[in-house]
Amino acid sequence: MTALSLAFTKDLFASVMLTGIYSLLSAGFFVLMDAVDVAFTEAAVGAGISTILMLTTLTMTGRFENRKLHHPKIALSVVIVTGIMLVMGTVDMPAFGSPSAPAQTHVAPYYIQQSAQDIDIPNIVTSVLASYRGFDTFGEVVVVFTAVIGVLALLEFARVERADSEKPVPMLQHKILRIVSKILIPPIMLFALYVQFHGEYSPGGGFQAGVIFASSIILYAMLFGIEQTRKAVSVPVVKVLSALGVLIYGSVGIASMLNGGTYLNYSVLAENDVTGQHIGIIVIELGVGITVATAMILIFLTFARRIGKTEEETA
């Protein structure tokens, strides 16, 4: 399949595209497997953001790779041994899709049967994500925040100060594109907001909304140039927001502690347990959305700004 052909292409540009296609195909697979939320995220993140970042990197690192493989035989044997281990592991696995598999009978039924009572939100994935396993999600937001810190620490500081002469922006001349996208960007943002606040009923939530919102900014940046975007979106504000998202999430936890519950116990936030859960979930999803959106924007802008510099120096 795609993955296999990827192993053999030397053209990195094609590889990126194949990786993107692979992500998209797996997103399709996720839909087949009823994992709509996951599919949504994989399509936005795997096929969208990662691909853009990889392409941006390629413009800096060069398109073609060296043909030489490193100890292909050793690598192949390591891989084969690992593969055989895994295949061996499948022998005793419960049959695919079986409703009586341990994974389906232990904890999962609780979520499916009780979440209506406990939390009263149709989308069980959101309930589990935001409440039952809310702390994992908090951890995940922190991971995103860590990545931002990492990327900024690595790429924000230029070796040479930026020259004033603006590089020609690739797509500035396409008038139609600009107009179309000007029309498109607000709806994308609106859609992001819809996904943000409608996550309880349909697939979606903070992450997906964050990614979509970020992609609208990225689209803007691609069409109107990085510097223009940096003027439109104040970077220091974005930075503060990315930290604020984490803090919002964290302070919901503190609030529930102060109200006498354990950390991230939303039930204590209101008189009624279910209302408390709703408040908690909406607020933390907001925190997630803010951090993810700002994180993606920051990462992209930092990468894209670096291109200009590298090109100037190599030229």
Binding site: V143, V144, A147
Partner: peptide
């Protein structure tokens, strides 16, 4: 379908993209 692995993978996807970015 069991929602729990979905949640785990949502987390893992984001972790994955964070790693890729870095």
């Amino acid at each position: 379908t069991n929602p729990l692995p979905h949640v785990l993978i949502l987390t893992a996807i984001v972790v994955g993209v964070a790693t890729t970015a870095l």
